[in-house]
């Protein structure tokens, strides 16, 4: 079956079974290796991408369900203002250890920040609790989200 996907602002055509998970479409057919396989069961969050700005588990999303939705991956999120702020905040507070889960973390955080205000600790926990990090960078993820969400950081990042 032929599908045309709108990925990171480009139309990409693939010929695959409709039940192929979006994760493997991205990784194998489109060579976008930044989205990671962690569990294949929607339990770890490593494969998180956006469909029309909403964080979804790409391992649980059959390609036939994507339709005309805009797919955004870690390779494309930096092109958005929120994505760029998050990536910078992540660098500033040195979140990353092994980095394997961080694409998924950034994608989940980007959906949270799109709500447009500085999230509370409870809101961060609720939004991020499905993204497992075995290096346990959670404390700094929290810091980085707050940093990226703060109005002063946003305007400083915009000036750059």
């Amino acid at each position: 079956m032929r599908y045309t996907l709108h990925v990171n602002g480009q139309d990409r055509s693939v010929d695959l079974d409709g039940d192929t998970p979006l994760l493997w479409v991205l990784r194998d057919a489109l060579e976008l290796k930044g989205t990671k396989f962690g569990c294949g069961a929607g339990l770890c969050g490593a494969c998180t991408v956006h469909l029309d700005g909403h964080a979804v588990r790409s391992c649980q999303t059959p390609v036939s369900d994507v339709g005309k939705s805009a797919v955004t991956t870690i390779e494309g999120i930096g092109e958005t203002a929120i994505g760029a702020r998050l990536q910078k905040a992540w660098l500033d507070v040195d979140v990353v250890q092994c980095g394997y889960c961080q694409a998924g973390q950034i994608m989940s955080a980007a959906e949270l920040l799109a709500q447009g205000h500085v999230p509370s600790d409870e809101a961060i926990t609720a939004a991020m609790n499905g993204n497992i990090c075995r290096c346990a960078t959670y404390t700094r993820i929290r810091q980085a989200i707050k940093r990226a969400a703060s109005p002063s950081f946003a305007s400083a990042a915009a000036r750059k």
Partner: peptide, 22 residues
């Protein structure tokens, strides 16, 4: 407190993990 040299690639999908090898 030097920022990590690994992070820019790991935060943009540019890491090279074993399964990423074509």
């Amino acid at each position: 407190r030097v920022r990590r040299v690994e992070d820019p690639r790991l935060l943009t999908g540019g890491g090279a993990f074993a399964d990423d090898l074509g």
